[in-house]
Design a protein around this nucleic acid. Structure first.
Lengths: 247, 247
DNA sequence: ACCTTAGGTGTATTTTTTACACGTATTCCA
DNA sequence: TGGAATACGTGTAAAAAATACACCTAAGGT
C-alpha cells in the first residue's frame, strides 16, 4: 500500500493496550521471485508451470515456503538457485502481499523479490522439473498468471525502474563483456522508452565505470562494436564517496 | 535486501520440485509503524514505551499482531488508529523483516509501514495507555530502540525521501492551512538539507497545486505570512495526466 | 520613533538535458 | 572485385533547469 488507509476500525483511541499472551495466530509465509534477464534487446521473466491445483499448468513466478531455519532473503535466494543453479545473485525485496483472500484456498502472506541474472548461462541448465521458460516482458500481459502474480510483476518492474536510476544495477543483467548498444538496449527495455544513442553513451562514459576493451563483437554488425566491461573497483570507490547515479 | 545474495545452498539445479503437502510451517506476523509528524520545523516520530519483557520500558515503534481476518494494510492502519484516534491516514508499506533471530525470543516476521499524520490533533488525545510521545528525528539516535526498530526507522525515512520526490505527500504532514515557510521547513527536515527560499517557492508554485488564501498567519512574525492550502482536485487532474513531481 | 523580525520578491549564471546527421569499417553478394 | 548493405562511432548548438544571490517591507515591541 501507499496512499490513504481510511477503513474505519475505531475512531477513538482504545482504552487498553492489547495483551500479548504468546498464543497469537500464525501464517504460512512464502516468497515469490521475479527472475529477470536480458536477452536479445528485451527484458525477460523466468516463469514456470504452476504445479498445484487449482492453477496447475498456469504460468507463475517461482516461489517457495519460508521455513523456521531460513530468513526471507535466504528463502528467496534458494528459490532462484534451485531453478537456475546460479550463485551470487543480485536480489532485492519488493513488497509483501498480505490480503486475506489473495490466495483463495488459504491465508498465505507472500513477500516478493526480484532477481537480476544473466540469461545465457541458464539457457541450457534450467532445472527441467520446473518447466520454466523465459518470457519477454512485452508479452506477459497475454499470459494468465496465477493469483496476484501480475501485480507482483508490475511492482517489481516499477521498483527496478526506480532503483536503476540510482544505482548501476543494469550490469547485473549483461554478460561480462558487452557493447554500448547492448547496454543501451537494456536500459531502453527497462525504462520502456527510446534513448538517444549519443547522449546515452556520453552520460554512461562520463560515469567512468566502464573499461573499453580492444576486442570487438561482430555478431550484429559487419563493422563490429567494441566491448566494454564494468569496473567494479571503481564502482566501490564511488560508493564510498557517496556518489549518485542517474540515467 | 538489495544487493548480492551469495550464500550457497546448492550450486546446481535441484532434481525435484518441493512437494506441497499442506503442512508447511507458520509464523507469527506483526506490523510495526513509523508514525511521522511535522512539528515546529522538524519531523517527529511517535514512539511508545514497549510493554513486554525483556525490553519493557524501552522506546519502540508501535506494532500489532496480524490476525486471520485482517490484511497487513488493515493491521497497520488499525495500529495507528488505536493510538491516535485518527481516520483517513496516509500510509505506505516499507519493508518486511524476516531474519531468523531478529527477535531473540521467538521467530516473528514483521512488516514495517510508515504513516504520515498531522501532529496537532494528536497532542491532546493520544491513547494514554501507550505512554506514547513525539520525538524529534534528530534525537532518535540517542534512544535505545528495541530489536531492529532503528533499522526500520532508517528504511522508512529513506523511502519517504524517495517517495516525496515523486509525489506531493508532504502535505499529509501539514495542517490544512500552512505557510510557505512551514512547507519549506518540512521539506528541509525530510531531505535534511537547507533549501533556498526563493527557488523553493518558485518551484512549488509552478506546480500549481496550491491555493493562496487571503488569511495570514501571525504566530511567527509581526508582518504575518499568507496561508496556502493544497488543492486536491488539481492534484487528481495532474495524476490522470501522469504528471511527475520533483523537488 | 526606532528597532527587531520574518516575509516577500527577480535576475543573471551555470549546469544539465535535449535534439540532431553523416562518414566509416566491414561483410556479403553479384 | 566492386558495389550495396548494415550497424558503428562521433560533436555541437539550442533549450531547459538548477542554482546563487540581497534588499526592501510590513507590523509589533520597546
Amino acid at each position: 500500500m501507499y496512499g490513504y488507509a481510511d477503513k474505519t476500525f475505531a475512531r477513538q483511541p482504545q482504552d487498553t493496550v492489547p495483551e500479548y499472551h504468546g498464543e497469537e495466530p500464525s501464517f504460512h509465509h512464502t516468497v515469490d521471485c521475479v527472475i529477470l534477464g536480458f536477452h536479445r534487446t528485451e527484458l525477460h521473466v523466468l516463469l514456470h508451470r504452476f504445479p498445484y491445483k487449482p492453477y496447475k499448468g498456469h504460468w507463475a513466478l517461482l516461489g517457495g515456503f519460508v521455513t523456521p531455519e531460513m530468513s526471507l532473503d535466504e528463502t528467496a535466494l534458494q528459490t532462484v538457485q534451485r531453478l537456475t543453479g546460479l550463485d551470487n545473485i543480485y536480489m532485492e525485496q519488493v513488497y509483501t502481499f498480505g490480503e486475506v483472500r489473495r490466495v483463495p484456498t488459504e491465508r498465505v502472506i507472500t513477500t516478493c523479490y526480484y532477481a537480476l541474472i544473466r540469461v545465457e548461462p541458464t539457457l541450457e541448465q534450467l532445472s527441467p522439473q520446473y518447466q520454466a521458460t523465459w518470457h519477454p516482458l512485452s508479452q506477459i500481459l497475454n499470459l494468465d498468471l496465477v493469483y496476484d502474480h501480475p501485480t507482483m510483476l508490475r511492482k517489481a518492474i516499477d521498483q527496478l525502474r526506480l532503483r536503476i536510476r540510482l544505482q548501476p544495477i543494469g550490469f547485473e543483467l549483461l554478460p561480462e563483456k558487452f557493447t554500448m548498444t547492448e547496454l543501451r538496449q537494456l536500459y531502453e527495455s527497462i525504462l520502456d522508452r527510446p534513448l538517444d544513442k549519443r547522449n546515452f553513451n556520453k552520460k554512461v562514459l562520463a560515469m567512468n565505470l566502464l573499461q573499453k576493451l580492444e576486442e570487438k563483437q561482430k555478431d550484429t554488425s559487419k563493422r563490429g562494436a567494441f566491448y566494454y566491461e564494468f569496473d567494479a573497483d571503481r564502482y566501490r570507490e564511488y560508493l564510498e564517496k557517496g556518489f549518485l547515479f542517474e540515467l
